[in-house]
Design a protein around this nucleic acid. Sequence first.
DNA 1: TAAGGCTACTGTAACGTTACAGGAAAGAAT
DNA 2: ATTCTTTCCTGTAACGTTACAGTAGCCTTA
Lengths: 377, 377
Amino acid sequence: MGGAAPSATTGGFALIGNMVSHDETRSEDAPAQPPVRPTLKTIARLAGLGVTTVSRALHDAPDIGEETKARVRRLAESLGYQPNRAGVRLRTGRSHVIALVLATEAEELGINSQLIYGISEALSSSTYQLVVMLHDPSADPLGPVRNIVEAGAADGILFARIEPDDARVRFLTERGVPFATHGRTSMGIVHPYFDFDNEAYAESAVRRLASLGRRRLALVGPPPHLAYARHMATGFCRGISALGLEKVSVEGIDTDSPHERIQAEVQRLMQRADRPDGIVSGGAVAALSVTAGAEAAGLVLGSDFDVVVKESSDLFRKFRPAIETAREDFRAAGRWLAQAIVGRIEGTVDADTHFLDVPRIEVSETMEERMAAGGIR
Amino acid sequence: MGGAAPSATTGGFALIGNMVSHDETRSEDAPAQPPVRPTLKTIARLAGLGVTTVSRALHDAPDIGEETKARVRRLAESLGYQPNRAGVRLRTGRSHVIALVLATEAEELGINSQLIYGISEALSSSTYQLVVMLHDPSADPLGPVRNIVEAGAADGILFARIEPDDARVRFLTERGVPFATHGRTSMGIVHPYFDFDNEAYAESAVRRLASLGRRRLALVGPPPHLAYARHMATGFCRGISALGLEKVSVEGIDTDSPHERIQAEVQRLMQRADRPDGIVSGGAVAALSVTAGAEAAGLVLGSDFDVVVKESSDLFRKFRPAIETAREDFRAAGRWLAQAIVGRIEGTVDADTHFLDVPRIEVSETMEERMAAGGIR
DNA sequence: TAAGGCTACTGTAACGTTACAGGAAAGAAT
DNA sequence: ATTCTTTCCTGTAACGTTACAGTAGCCTTA
């Protein structure tokens, strides 16, 4: 592990001295009595049965008597028996682990927490555990995915930030390892995925801006190497042509660009004669930078221009109600993905399961008021 | 697993039909050739050595010849040998798992992602894996912590949202299970922790507001059951009395309260004759609600009142530069905690290791400009 | 009465690893 | 020539689980 580690004595940071003089706070009665965990053997001994019988009883096998099963179950319950994961894993080769591989790149305001909450929530009633790993996509494109497969570290893998032609999807399909993704490729490989319909989002965002009287629109989309960048661009262009609007191109920035870059580019754009009067943003953080840029150009949100954004928290409602939002629920996505991957592992879900989340632009209160008060500008 | 699961055929959601007609995209050549993972036995056979020797060679045991070690290592390397976690775990009783227990409560803008990134980052070069579990604190206060211990699911446990008298800290100390926390109790039990100095934060926030000419201050602190609520209150009061300022009490809300509640309470407060002119917020999301409430009362940020906030992202710099911030780095906290818990497990770090993160209020550009332009109002 | 077929249970082996108790070979000391 | 040391390696057993091949006892069926 790199970086400064807590040292054995006081640590390399600005550490504070001992607060208590004793080494252990309470250690007078028992030095260490690790309460031995019950195993199948424990139960077998107590029930006067063979270990195999106990195992099969707990698995509700058909060749064990009903009364015996009940007795074994009661005993296991009262002892607080929990199967030893290592034993099961060693014997069956199944780890009961789901790996979530996260990119280390700039993150959109806690979407990964939400994803993790959803996955954990769905897994909490199962025997599966969630392990989280970091992936630096600038290094090996396969990254931890290859490692997980080669080390047999998980029964199934989840990941996001899918590319149109994704090396991980190809690799895992070849290896026959169960996986599910947030986002979809354009490779034609069948696998479970959850995706937000970014094409529909962008198109309805355009329609929304048009209904506000906006005619010249720009898109700040996701990084172009990601699959959903295309979807969003497609929807955006479709909306533009369907409504006969004008498209203003934005160059060199995406929703992952640093604040300063986005702000500067938008400011430059907004100072042009043919400046856009409506902007569709692919992400919440970028929308802030966009707004800051437009305001730096002397324009007023809701009067000189409008912004529609896709967000996962309800942050904008709190402080920028004039920005219209489409909500993407990452917690629900996490739940779905967890169930899909477990289903794939256990063979109860088809490979072609997928879910396309339909976006709905939420009209903000302020906007409602605006329209009630004065109609569309 | 509760909730709607992806069904075996097409799923219970708004699913879309098959995109590809074939069952598997490529399965013409080999039906399934799971490339058998090498074990110690594989290496032993190839090297003409005993399994024990290979194991000891890879562990760099002193009683193995240097040349043999080198040979074994080369062989292991070339085969891509990775020790089987289940075998190791079964034999040694060590899971090489660190559990992170997260509360399901309202989260401050992705701090848990940052924590997870930090932990994963630090663990990525070790043999430890991070598993994440959810904890509903309204249910069993011990929650998954007890489960982890009873199931032997992890070698060490990390958690946050510490209470002054924390049942989990007591339980784990009694059981002798290694753990480390983000936040500290007031129980006098010695254990590793990382904490942000919220007392110092609140005091310097007060000083900052005073230097802006603010005289009547209010605190919107964390939920009172959490340990750091006391720290923050202490620092706040200390600052107030040291500078001879006035304290305006805020009733019934904390940083976890819903937006509407905070906004309404702050609005009410700001309409009183003895309204505060400076507010210290314990969290970024709450600060938005606070500002919204004050603005709803017709007041102007930076002119009628100022806000100082503790945040973990640099969100405020992007859209509310007039709000002063102290940065709390959760990713660094995660790194520290990971190293501390591994150190505890392996016995290389003392139980009293801890780190108190010193807060620094970052003076925003706008504020600098404000002061350069007109001095303190 | 014997053969066949159930029902309900059991022992053995193996998954991959490491602790432990050895032990052979070679050199050093007596 | 014998004993002791040191060096380097090995076999066995065990962790907890489950697949598999059995088996004892009993009840049918011919």
